[in-house]
């Protein structure tokens, strides 16, 4: 199982959302990157759904 590979690897974290969680990773010297996330299509949910469908095509 892939989870068991994770247990044997160095944890490398992508953080998306609360920046304080990213700061917590940094303070523990964990390899991490913070995504400067914003709602897709300016928060227009219909447009975002359309974009997401286009991505999956």
């Amino acid at each position: 199982m892939k989870v068991n590979e994770l247990f044997k690897s160095e944890l490398k974290v992508i953080n998306m959302g609360l920046e304080s969680f990213y700061q917590d990773m940094k303070s523990q010297d964990v390899s991490a990157i913070h995504v400067n996330w914003k709602p897709a299509a300016g928060g227009n949910e219909k447009m975002a759904a359309l974009l997401s469908r286009m991505k999956s095509i």
């Binding site: 994770l6 690897s9 160095e10 944890l11 490398k12 974290v13 992508i14 953080n15 998306m16 959302g17 609360l18 969680f21 390899s31 991490a32 990157i33 995504v35």
Partner: peptide, 14 residues
Amino acid sequence: AVEHLKGANLVQIS
């Protein structure tokens, strides 16, 4: 982010 952090294995989403 995946491109920049080589070997990333977990995403924390909030």
